[in-house]
Computed example of a mutant assay.
Amino acid sequence: MKKSDFYYDLPEELIAQTPLEKRDTSRLMVLDKKTGQVQHKHFYDIIDYLQAGDCLVINDTKVIPARLYGQKTGTGGAVEVLLLKDLGEGRWECIVYPGRRLKEGANITFGDGRLTATIDKVLETGNRIISFRYEGIFLEILEELGEMPLPHYIKEHLSDPDRYQTVYCREPGSAAAPTAGLHFTPELMERIREKGVVFAPVTLHVGLGTFRPVKEEEITDHVMHSEQYFITPQSAEIINQTRQSGHRVIAVGTTSCRTLETVTDENHVTHPGTGNTDIFIYPGYTFKGLDALITNFHLPESTLVMLVSALAGRENILNAYRQAVEEKYRFFSFGDAMFIC
């Protein structure tokens, strides 16, 4: 299967640059994965498509202010560091700019010495392993010195950083938001609960690899990035009870989907635990953990378009995306939503 099989034409003006004033007023395309039939709604209408006993699996990760600006010790040259993965004990895997200045042993200072760092290792990917030194709590220092790492296709300044967080975020660690969850409000979630739908939180810390383009024409040659996940015994039990009672397990976002498919076995039993997943889902994949998916509209030829094509069929997805372009839906992180059911 070719990368070009997942191309669609997207006018640049349809890439949402800012979030809507009210989260749940975004548009919602409802796609029947069996028939390909499409309905056009608003996100607050999602409640009409949920049934008592359903389970919504949400990713409660929280985006950290992962972009840091500093100076190389000795030369004073400007440096940008983007935190990707917490390796423990003050060590992180990072992207750095400009790479040619930051070789092993180089030192960096941020915020007039509030935070300092050393390049420990240059990886084959070009990323760096960096050790940070500080006094106090690292996340508090990030809140003071860091910036929210918005995707490259968003050019507008985000005036309220909380709008790049879900209302249910809890576990700090992501470099990008699980954007399907951005449409929920506390009020909508309460109405959903009152209908008899349960929520099961999982955590997958989203890395910037989620935006990495597929370069290989044969998609099976693509190497997926790895991301850390956690799922508690309580959430696994909720998901398993939902499935056993004949109700639907609905993933909110591709990150929740990838977590579910990683921790659910061939007998459709979801297991608690923690680990790293590099699961790559594309057409031909048999889903074990979910019945339906709430998601945003994804980049052409991306692994995420391939994932939703695996669930709903490539032709159904490309036809739905063509309709979304015609109807002038808003695309990508701050854009509109799709419910594949």
Rank of each mutant, 00 (worst) to 15 (best):
F211V: 09
V57N: 00
Y229Q: 15
Q323T: 13
E237D: 14
A292F: 13
R212I: 05
R243E: 09
Y168E: 05
R314L: 00
K195C: 03
L182G: 05
T25P: 00
G136T: 01
M1S: 02
P98Q: 13
S302V: 03
T232A: 13
F297N: 05
M1W: 01
E104N: 14
V79Y: 06
S174H: 00
A180R: 13
L182D: 05
V167T: 11
T232R: 02
L299C: 10
T264E: 09
Y282T: 07
G74M: 06
G76Q: 12
D60Q: 15
Q228K: 14
P11W: 00
D54S: 04
Y7I: 03
I250A: 03
Y321K: 01
E124T: 15
E143K: 13
T220L: 11
D291G: 11
A324H: 12
T303R: 01
K215H: 11
P98V: 13
L139F: 14
I279L: 15
E218R: 13
L304I: 03
R248Y: 00
R314Y: 00
E217V: 12
Q39L: 15
D265F: 10
D278T: 02
G126T: 04
E190L: 13
G53R: 05
D5R: 09
I279K: 02
L290D: 01
I281C: 04
K85Y: 12
I46P: 11
T295C: 10
D54G: 09
K195E: 11
R314K: 06
T210L: 01
F332I: 11
S333Q: 06
E217P: 07
A312F: 05
H183Y: 15
M29A: 07
H183E: 10
H152M: 09
Y285T: 04
P283F: 00
I46A: 07
K62C: 08
D162V: 04
T179V: 02
P65C: 06
L102V: 13
S159M: 14
R133I: 03
Y168R: 11
G126L: 12
G74H: 08
